[in-house]
Amino acid sequence: MYPHERSLVKQLSDKPFALIGVNSDRDLEQIRQTVKEKNLNWRSFWNGPDGTGGPISTEWNVTGWPTIYILDKDGVIRYKNARGPAMDKALTTLLAEMGQSVEITHEEDSE
């Protein structure tokens, strides 16, 4: 996952795009370390010390990880759980709606 996400964030850095995480690790120190070590280049909410039982994932009824929502510029949910090439295609579509033509390619192999 990480390489694909890193690659997207990098490629779309000058586009109206953001990857926002909701991290459900219990140990905040440890995940900070991981972010540094693996060069995870996106911002995340922390779901709190209850991990997967934390407030955000509970409100969003998340029962499987990862769970992915893709929102358009108006905050409307447009796709659920689109991953890999499906995610790339969804983003291309949504950015095109905003008049942004992008072609997403990945140099790093997806995990």
């Binding site: 953001a18 909410f45 893709i70 108006d74 905050g75």
Partner: peptide
């Protein structure tokens, strides 16, 4: 911060864990 801070952008909201 808030999710709505990113209104106006396409957002991938990713529930993840290491």
């Amino acid at each position: 911060f808030k999710l709505s801070d990113y209104r106006g952008k396409v957002v991938v909201l990713d529930f993840w864990g290491d």
